[in-house]
Amino acid sequence: MSLRMLWRKSVNALMLSLTGLCALVAVSVLFFILGYLLYHGGKDVNWDFFTKLPKPVGETGGGMANAIVGSGKLLLLAALFGVPVGLLGGVYLAEFGGRTVPFVVRYTADLLNGVPSIVIGIFAYAVVVMPVHHFSTVAGGFALGVMMIPIVLRSTEEFLHAVPPALREGAMALGASKWRTISSVVVPAASRGILTAALLALARVAGETAPLLFTAFGNRFWSPGWGQPIASLPVMIFTYAVGPYEDWHRQAWAAGLVLLGLVLITNIVVRTLLSRGTSPQRS
C-alpha cells in the first residue's frame, strides 16, 4: 500500500470517527439535561410541590399548585383557539384549495411559525393587554394559541394529503357530497395524525416562557376566572432561577423536572404512536 493510500485511509478513519463523535456529543446533551434535572430536582418533586401555593418571599417551603393549574388553563385556551383554526384551515388547504389562496396561507403560516416567541408576546400585548390595561389569562392563552396555529395547520394538511384518494373516491361514488366525504371519511382517516400533531403543538407551547412574560404575567396566588394575571410553570422557573433565594432555586429545579417530564413524555408517546400508526400505510 502506497504512502498516499495510507494517508487517505487514515483521514477516512479519522473523519468518520469524528462525525460519530459529533453525533454522540449532540445526543449526550439530552442525557446531561435529564441527569442534572433528576439529580437537582428529583428530591423536591413531592406532594407539597403539587398541592401548595408559593410561600411569601423569604419563607421556605410551599409549592407551585397555582402555576400547574395556570399552565393548564393557558394551554386549554391555546388549544381552544389554535386547534380549530389550524384544523379547519388545514382542511381548506388540503381539500378545497385552488392555487393562490393556499399558497398565500402556507407562506404566511411558515412566516408566522418562524416569528420569535417574544415578538408574538408583543403582538398579544398590543391586541389583548393594551385595550384593557391589565395582564390576563386570556392574553397568555391567545399568545400560545397564535403559536399553535401554524403547526396544527401544516400538519393537518400533510396528514389529509396522506389519506389515499381511493377513500375519497369511494365515498363520492356512494353519492356523498364533498363535505360529507371530508367530514365522515377523510378527516376520521387522518384523525390519529391530526390529534398527535395537536398534542405535539401543545407540548411545544407548554414550555414557552417569553410570550407569557407580559401577557399572562405571573401570580403568586390563585387566579380566579380568565381576566387576571396567572402563574405558569415556565415563568415560575424563570423567576425562581434568577431570584436570589436558595429555596427558590430548589423549586426551580423541581419545576424544571416536572415541565421537562411532561414535554418529553408527550413527545415520546406521540412520536411512537405516529411512527407505528402511519408509516406502514404510507410506504
Binding site: Y92, V101, L111, V115
Partner: peptide, 28 residues
C-alpha cells in the same frame, strides 16, 4: 348540499392565519 358553506367556513379559518400575520406586522 353544504359544500359551498363548508368551503366558505374553512376558507375563513384558513384566512385567520393571514389576518393574524398581517395584524402582527401592523401592530409592530
Amino acid at each position: 348540499s353544504g359544500d359551498e358553506i363548508a368551503r366558505l367556513i374553512t376558507l375563513v379559518f384558513a384566512l385567520v392565519v393571514v389576518v393574524l400575520t398581517v395584524m402582527l406586522v401592523e401592530q409592530l
